[in-house]
Design a protein around this nucleic acid. Structure first.
Length: 462
DNA sequence: CTAGGGTTAG
């Protein structure tokens, strides 16, 4: 019995170490086997054993599986502690389940356990991540009231949360206020605020903070480089972005999947397929293990090359390796099939996606609607449109254009008005297509009314 | 417990 021998003669503490290292390697089956063997040999798992498993199940399997460990733990008469709850709250955060985390937090209080700084930080993070900034801030206030001293992780969570809900300005003010009170920002803080400022278009402020980071004594890390590089790509400064990438490589950060992914995708989008492939070669040469996002980037590159066969082969390889395609993978493939003119195949791919459980993937639907419109099948596109439970400006733009191309300006106009009512807008070119179409096909009054509506919508937006 | 990456129109 090899498993028994592995732990024979060890204490519970060593059982825990063995389970922890198996969990770290994501080998939960073996971790369970070791646990069972341990129990059979008389080693009683303690709270640490169960906490380790709960953390691992949250990270690699699912929140419900983690809960089942909690039940097993209670059955075994081991009392959950603060760390147990913190791990579960972290799990609920991972899957964006704010009510679960609140529930767990409450339960912790009711059991007589005092939430610690981690409990508060994690709950706050969960609420921000799930789109409840006010509630997150309340948790922060509660923490202060309970005399729990916030750490830099608390402030970083606050700053990050504010950035992610589109309040980078508030985040920066908080950052400055904290500095005034003697808080010295760490590298995580710098990276967080730089990313937030970049993404909200405050490039000047981002540059200033980047300069301060340089003067702070911290060395920029791979995350700093990737953040700034991505920011350049987003604002169309490709040369500058590529320069930052090569600087990063020169500094020795040459085994970072995120950075490679970012630059490969930028090169692909720019149509620099050769350079993108050279970069792929370099990445693979460095022996980097591919993750899901990386596979998606490579599948996207193959699609842009028009090499759908290899793209699908790569998807197979990815799934055989245990990584399931996700909504990105399917959107990329649906779009590529449409662009190659295989609209039927794209439709099948979308159905396959739904069978796999990615219901109502907005992007994939948009791609198919656009593809259908481009081959003149506007009615099929409308049918699909009516099946969608959420729409965005892409959806409307494609359909409006498609209708106009068929000369159905009044339907297009109606759709455009619906779109405005929902607070969205379509591309100018689509707007013009409708008004010009109405005008030239004799509906001059409708054209005028639509123009007014469009102008009003424009005004109310600023 | 906190920071970076991958998909859609014109």
């Amino acid at each position: 019995m090899p498993l028994s021998r592995e732990i024979c003669g060890f204490s519970t503490q060593l059982l825990n170490i063995s389970i922890a290292s198996l969990c770290k390697a994501r080998n939960l089956e073996k971790a369970e086997a070791v646990l069972i063997d341990g129990i059979r040999l008389g080693y009683i798992p303690d709270v640490v054993t169960y906490n380790t498993l709960i953390t691992a199940y949250c990270r690699f399997v699912g929140i419900n599986e983690a809960y089942s460990i909690l039940y097993r733990m209670r059955e075994a008469g081991v009392k959950p502690d603060v760390i147990t709850y913190n791990s579960l709250i972290a799990g609920a955060t991972r899957y964006c389940l704010p009510s679960r985390s609140l529930e767990l937090f409450e339960e912790m209080l009711q059991t007589g356990l005092a939430p610690d700084e981690w409990s508060y930080n994690t709950l706050m993070h969960c609420l921000f991540k799930s789109g409840y900034p006010e509630e997150a801030y309340k948790i922060y206030m509660d923490m202060i009231l309970k005399n729990i001293t916030p750490s830099s992780a608390t402030y970083n969570t606050l700053i990050n949360g504010l950035c992610k809900v589109g309040k980078a300005g508030n985040a920066l003010r908080l950052f400055r206020n904290l500095q005034r009170f003697g808080f010295s920002a760490g590298l995580v803080t710098y990276n967080t605020i730089i990313d937030g400022l970049c993404k909200s278009g405050r490039m000047g402020q981002a540059r200033r903070i980047l300069k301060e980071l340089g003067e702070s004594g911290y060395a920029p890390n791979a995350i700093t480089y990737t953040t700034v590089m991505k920011c350049c790509f987003r604002s169309g400064k490709f040369e500058q972005g590529f320069e930052i990438f090569s600087e990063m490589m020169n500094k020795g950060y040459n085994s970072d999947v995120f950075a490679y992914c970012t630059v490969i995708s930028a090169l692909t989008k720019k149509g620099m397929i050769k350079d993108a492939n050279a970069c792929v070669k370099q990445m693979l040469g460095n022996g980097i293990g591919l993750d899901k996002a990386c596979y998606n980037t490579l599948i996207y590159l193959l699609c842009r090359e028009g090499n759908l066969e290899t793209a699908f082969r790569l998807l197979n390889e990815m799934e055989e390796g245990g990584l399931e395609g996700d909504e990105y993978t399917y959107s990329i493939l649906v779009d590529a099939l449409c662009k190659m003119g295989h609209v039927d195949a794209a439709h099948k791919q979308l159905q396959l996606m739904e069978m796999r459980g990615f219901q109502s993937n907005l992007v994939a639907y948009n791609c198919l609607i656009d593809g259908l419109c481009k081959v003149g099948e506007v009615d099929s596109a409308m049918k699909l449109f009516n099946k969608m439970n959420s729409k965005d400006p892409f959806t409307y733009t494609s359909l409006v254009h498609g209708l106009c191309r068929k000369g159905r300006f009044r339907v297009a106009s109606k759709l455009l008005l619906t779109c405005l009512r929902e607070g969205m807008n379509v591309l100018r070119s689509a707007q013009r297509a409708v008004t010009a179409g109405l005008q030239s096909s004799g509906f001059k009054r409708d054209a005028g009314k639509l123009r007014t509506a469009l102008r009003l919508a424009q005004l109310s937006r600023y």
